[in-house]
Nucleic acid binder design. Structure first.
Length: 529
DNA sequence: TGACCAAGCGCC
DNA sequence: AAAGGGCGCTTGGTCA
């Protein structure tokens, strides 16, 4: 079912002509809840961009069960086809289809002078048909279809989470800030506690220093006979000077104040809800990004501000050691898969290694991230010996990256090609360094991107299993949060486990690898761990 | 004055 | 506890 502007166009055969209902939202609601609307029979909505099409429906109280997002799909396809940089909007895709000049990528920001007419329903149907053809031409269309479905479901979920928002108690937030920083200052002033720490720093140096200025700090330490390469906190911790302690305290609190302080809450919290703007596929690996609100960087200390409504609860779940499990499943490494069949993967790994858990963890992370420092080389040799297939899998990805080739996730998300700049660097005297850097990136890409796919599948399945009026309200890479009435907690917790199993089956088929996802019901996010 | 970069650190 | 890949976001500082 195509939705373009105000037009609804059935594209399955024999379902009638395009129409422009007087009340679009009501028409969509009706089609979603049609007489024979079993879950599998509900329409799949095809539209240019979920970020534009869906929020008005949500505002009108309408939710859809599935969609095909042309823009997201175009991005996935272009990358896969080795055409990474080309504009990915549905409009651009349509222009290319007709051999017309392709419009520049145009973020639809408020205040843009030209808001182009939305693509017509026929054009949307044409782009869809073209995309479906291109998918079938890929080496593994089945997996890619799953990727498209999951990415599109993610777009629905992102819009819904932005609409519903995560519970955020402003009174608790204010109390926390006041406790740590002092009362809210008038605009532009430092909170009392921060000012006191800044004064302590100045006193330690014997002259005023702006603790927010790296330059001034380095100069001040130099004057005190301490040479510093940077003012990173771990470097500061190593030196002995009376300014260090108040400075470290200042840095931590100043960050809290400027990133997640009162001004942030004024902008992002309304009606007891924090409503971030998620960007699906905003990271090349397929992880989500945010375009405001910093939802993916909320400091742990802030978790006590996230409190369920009266009579409701928060079901919080995160996938344990997701990335090594993903590697085990992808590489088809029997030994690693056996370890990943256990709840605590690292302990199982340590047994297979004959070493301790910490070393097993370092070995695993080094393999996935390309670590070289400390004990990594020795532990990597062990990895290679014990888990040759898994080792080979990430080594191949790294080698591809070093040679400037593309790599793909399990479902077919494709890494960006190397830049011109990179090719120049690689040809130059310091070429080895640039090559190794890209190798580390592609090595990690195959794992991180596939982990993102699993998480997307998990959310898509979970969304379909949630009983009304439970809502997904937060997602952070491998962690989800559901807000629901207390009485539904058990059902939601079970839904999370079921969704993890189903996501694993969807993405990897039959595999001995387990993906444990333990959910807990808490009234406050801070109590979840 | 606005655009842009680097540093630094929060999250996974 | 960190290593290491990925990000967002703010501040200070530079440059046109």
């Amino acid at each position: 079912m195509v939705l373009a502007g105000e037009t609804v166009l059935p594209i399955a055969s024999g379902q009638g002509a395009a129409r422009r209902p007087a009340d679009l939202a009501a028409a969509v609601r009706e089609l979603e809840a049609g007489p024979d609307a079993g879950a599998a029979r509900r329409p799949r909505w095809v539209w240019a961009d979920t970020r534009e099409a869906y929020p008005p429906l949500l505002d009108a109280g309408v939710r859809v069960s599935r969609c095909h997002d042309l823009t997201l799909t175009e991005g996935l396809l272009l990358a896969c086809e080795g055409r990474y940089g080309e504009p990915r909007s549905a409009r651009a895709a349509h222009a290319r289809l007709h051999g017309r000049p392709v419009p520049d990528e145009q973020p639809s920001m408020p205040g843009t002078l030209f808001a182009p007419e939305p693509l017509g329903a026929d054009a949307v149907a044409e782009v869809l048909a073209d995309q479906l053809r291109r998918v079938e031409a890929l080496p593994d269309p089945g997996r890619f279809r799953l990727l498209v479905a999951a990415e599109s479901a993610g777009a629905l979920i992102a819009a819904e989470m932005g609409h519903d928002g995560m519970p955020w108690r402003r009174d608790v937030h204010d109390a926390l800030l006041t406790e740590l920083l002092g009362p809210r200052p008038v605009h532009g002033m430092r909170p009392a506690r921060l000012q006191a720490l800044a004064d302590e720093v100045a006193a330690a140096f014997g002259h005023p220093v702006n603790p927010d200025s790296v330059q001034q700090l380095v100069k001040a330490f130099k004057g005190a006979g301490v040479a510093l390469k940077s003012t990173r906190s771990w470097e500061l911790k190593r030196i002995d000077h009376p300014a260090v302690e108040p400075l470290l305290a200042y840095k931590e609190l100043a960050r809290l104040h400027s990133f997640h302080g009162w001004a942030w809450a004024d902008q992002w919290v309304r009606g007891g809800r924090f409503r971030p703007e998620y960007v699906v596929g905003g990271v090349v690996s397929g992880r989500w990004a945010t375009s405001g609100g910093g939802a993916l960087q909320i400091p742990k200390v802030m978790r006590r501000v996230v409190v369920a409504d009266e009579g409701w609860t928060l079901v919080v779940a995160d996938a344990a050691q997701l990335e090594p499990r993903v590697l085990a499943a992808m590489a088809g490494d029997a030994g690693l898969a056996r370890a990943a069949g256990e709840i605590d993967l690292y302990s199982a790994l340590a047994q297979a290694f004959g070493g301790d858990r910490d070393h097993a963890k370092i070995a695993m992370l080094s393999a996935m991230y390309g670590g070289t420092s400390g004990d990594a080389p020795k532990l990597l040799a062990m990895m290679r010996q014990r888990f040759p297939h898994a080792y080979r899998f990430v080594e191949d990805a790294a080698k591809a990256g070093e040679e400037g080739r593309l790599v793909r996730s399990w479902l077919g998300r494709t890494s960006p090609p190397p830049s011109e700049r990179w090719r120049e660097l690689v040809a130059g005297p310091e070429g080895g360094r640039a090559a190794r850097d890209r190798g580390r990136f592609t090595r990690n890409f195959v794992v991180q991107a596939t982990a993102a796919e699993w998480a997307l599948a998990l959310m898509a399945v979970l969304r379909g299993l949630l009983p009304e009026p439970a809502r997904l309200v937060f997602f952070q890479h491998d962690e989800v949060m559901v807000h629901c009435p207390l009485g539904l907690a058990r059902e939601v917790i079970d839904a999370v486990s079921a969704a993890a199993e189903e996501a694993t089956r969807l993405v990897f088929g039959a595999t001995p690898v387990r993906f444990p996802m333990e959910a807990v019901a808490v009234s406050c996010y801070a109590d979840a761990k």
